[in-house]
């Protein structure tokens, strides 16, 4: 508004608007309904004696449960390791110019994504019935080393193979999507500088693909933590199986399932926080300003300052008109 305009109704700076905000009675009604439902749920949890909270308390840190938890975490970590390494390999094979490599990767993904992971776990468990011995040697020739399958692949390894190789198929698609999200100009720029295919992938493409790969990988890890419970079907004693073993003796089924759930929930919560920090790390260069960490958010909240939204932030030192 031009204040020097003659005949202007409001000369000078226009005042800040003071208006009655829109009322939202629907929000209040909705909140009331939800509050009542929540109160009912809490009441039910506290008063229903079948939950036997004292039993929950007793078994929460039971050594069998803690051992099972350890196995679950180990399985989650190692099978994700296999999954990520296998996924990157499969994704690069899938994108390879070599038709044998790309169709092999396609076939692998087709099989491992197309069958339930529980079936795959059972297959690995009963591998001994398929091939009695495993040996290493010249293909179609003599063997240097041979071992009965059941001895070469103990229960834990069978579980690891089942979960890890299945995960690799899913990770392959995630990694492929990430690699393809990086513009072709990045590869060209790296090649024009004389960088090798390998270094271009390692230094330029994968770090940028990470930003796209990390969020779904975090979800996969959280999902894997829960999927490990399927391993109880081949009687490996992880968290769920540990709970089952106890309640099959004591018949305190519900409280032990609650114990197990509490641990799963705690672990997935920790993973969620970890995922947030990793995403933040790989956002370098993509956002002008990194989003605040939960702790920074809390501190600002208590300091009475509003938590800024990313798009309103201004980086000192940026002169206007930056191109993204």
């Amino acid at each position: 508004m031009n204040s020097s305009d003659q005949g202007s109704v409001h000369p000078g700076r226009p005042e800040t608007i003071k208006a009655v905000p829109v009322r939202h009675p629907g929000r209040w009604a909705g909140a009331a309904v939800v509050a009542v439902l929540a109160a009912m749920l809490i009441h039910a949890l506290v008063t229903n004696r079948q939950f036997q909270w004292d039993v929950v308390n007793k078994y929460l840190f039971d050594s069998t449960i803690l051992h099972g938890l350890g196995v679950t975490l180990e399985l989650t970590f190692l099978s994700m390791l296999i999954g990520v390494a296998g996924g990157i390999t499969l994704a690069i094979m899938r994108l390879s110019a070599n038709p044998v490599l790309s169709s092999t990767a396609w076939f692998y993904i087709w099989v491992f994504r197309g069958t339930p992971v529980l079936v795959q776990l059972l297959f690995w468990n009963f591998l001994g019935a398929l091939w009695a011995n495993i040996s290493i040697g010249i293909p179609f020739g003599p063997a240097f080393w041979s071992e009965p399958t059941n001895k070469a692949i103990p229960l834990f390894v069978a579980a690891l193979l089942g979960l890890g190789l299945n995960e690799a198929a899913y990770m392959a698609e995630i990694v492929r999507g990430g690699i393809q999200s990086v513009p072709i100009g990045q590869t060209e720029a790296a090649h024009a500088l004389g960088m090798s295919q390998f270094n271009t992938m390692r230094r330029i493409i994968l770090p940028q693909a990470m930003r796209v790969i990390i969020p779904p990988t975090g979800n996969e890890t959280i999902s894997m933590l829960k999927t490990t419970s399927l391993v109880s079907a081949i009687s490996l004693e992880e968290l769920l199986r540990a709970g089952e073993n106890i309640y099959s003796r004591t018949f305190q089924t519900i409280p032990l399932l609650v114990v197990v759930s509490i641990w799963y929930l705690l672990m997935t919560s920790i993973l969620t926080v970890g995922q947030y920090y990793i995403e933040r790390h790989f956002a370098r260069g993509a956002n002008r300003v990194l989003p605040p960490t939960p702790f920074q958010r809390l501190r600002r909240l208590f300091a009475g300052k509003p938590v800024p939204k990313i798009e309103h932030d201004v980086v000192p030192g940026i002169e206007g008109g930056g191109h993204v």
Binding site: E188, A189, H191, A192, I204
Partner: peptide, 17 residues
């Protein structure tokens, strides 16, 4: 051989990370 030939692109193609 590309080491000795510098190239500048229309869309810069800097490494954003």
């Amino acid at each position: 051989k590309r080491r000795d030939i510098g190239m500048v692109f229309q869309h810069f193609n800097l490494f954003p990370h």
